[in-house]
Design a protein around this nucleic acid. Structure first.
Lengths: 208, 208
DNA sequence: GTCTATAACCAGATAGAC
DNA sequence: GTCTATCTGGTTATAGAC
């Protein structure tokens, strides 16, 4: 497979193709997105697409890579501000909610395209794994900082998994219900605090 | 579209076709499943498939219908047993976890095939909505009974949505990680109890 | 109800001029 | 880097014998 990076030139059409492919694949999935649709949506002929990406798998891989970069670089830092657990947790959840709102495409790509196994290249599958790992790492680090869990990584990991389950489930609900549905920040707050207490973590919050 | 029901005959091949189509669509999605693959997997020629279901949309609709029936009929009743909130909640979550383990196909169909909008028939989309509603109704009724929420339906609905978000997110994690991942029953228990307390519901459980 | 055969079309991918 | 033209194969769907 050829790649524009090897040729050194800056290619505006490359980005346009990626934009179109991202939107289509987030909507219709990998199998449901054809080269000709990408061609029509981006304005570039099919041969240009192949010149840039070599194959349909190549486009998919490039789309995933860019989506991961976009999403990860839009995440807030892993040290949410605040003097108390409650403040830091609020800051963390607000940041997560904002990222959730601003990157529906990228999330859908991660979630919806998990269905491939056969029929797609190993590189794309690996990229998907990286995508998911990056999110997990971010959540684990952030929650570790919120609750002061440097010495209890297992607990941080458990909280992150639970949190990401809710994120994933909410993303599903969103693609049925549309943008009305957003992250249930309040419930997540209550749930995460309860899980922290359940692990006997010091949580400086009582009933109001 | 024709339909075997109109012809009155019992058709064993119909079920075989549906079995094959269910497995394939749960794995590869709607667009990724072709008639010829269903034909090869079920042993019936393509023309038989069209005789039974009329179109690819027709197969999809029938697959969804049957998956919904299977899943819904496998759910435990909406009145989990127990004298205390804690006991009823445990019974409810154990039942949900069992259904989750036993019906990965049916859940995947619900979740993964949400990506269609265009390109698939309106009837199939409506069926998907029914599918999802049935699950929501079951969760709402069950949690209403667990916490005694006959007079506070909004709270029951909120708890059900939160619970189903976790279920959906876990289903996603499962199709990355495989059957190792199951419903986080313990965390769900802690979270749901905390949300109930947050709504000032009487919860007969303190720290042990 | 199931078979073989096939029509009509669209998919992924490539060739070669420019 | 982009264009037009094209090849090959798979796709949905149908026709008509049995």
């Amino acid at each position: 497979m050829q790649d524009a990076a090897l040729h050194g030139a800056q290619v505006p059409s490359r980005e346009a193709i990626l934009d179109a492919a991202t939107a289509l694949m987030a909507r219709f999935g990998y199998a449901g997105t054809s080269i000709s649709k990408i061609s029509a949506a981006s304005g570039s002929p099919a041969s240009s697409i192949y010149w840039h990406f070599g194959s349909k798998d190549g486009i998919y891989l490039a789309v995933l890579r860019r989506a991961r970069q976009h999403l990860v670089s839009s995440l807030p830092g892993t040290r949410p501000a605040g003097d108390t657990v409650g403040e830091r947790l609020t800051a963390f959840l607000d940041g997560a909610s904002a990222a959730f709102e601003n990157h529906p495409h990228d999330l859908r790509l991660l979630l919806g395209l998990g269905m491939l196994e056969e029929g797609t290249g190993a590189a794309a599958i690996a990229e998907l794994g990286q995508y998911r790992l990056a999110l997990r790492q971010w959540a684990t680090d952030s929650l570790g900082h919120v609750f002061g869990l440097a010495d209890r990584p297992a607990v941080a990991d458990e909280l992150a998994r639970f949190m990401l389950s809710v994120v994933g489930g909410t993303a599903i609900a969103r693609w049925f219900d549309g943008p009305v549905t957003s992250l249930p920040v309040q419930q997540l707050r209550v749930a995460l605090l309860a899980l922290a207490r359940h692990h006997r973590l010091p949580v400086d919050e009582g009933p109001p």
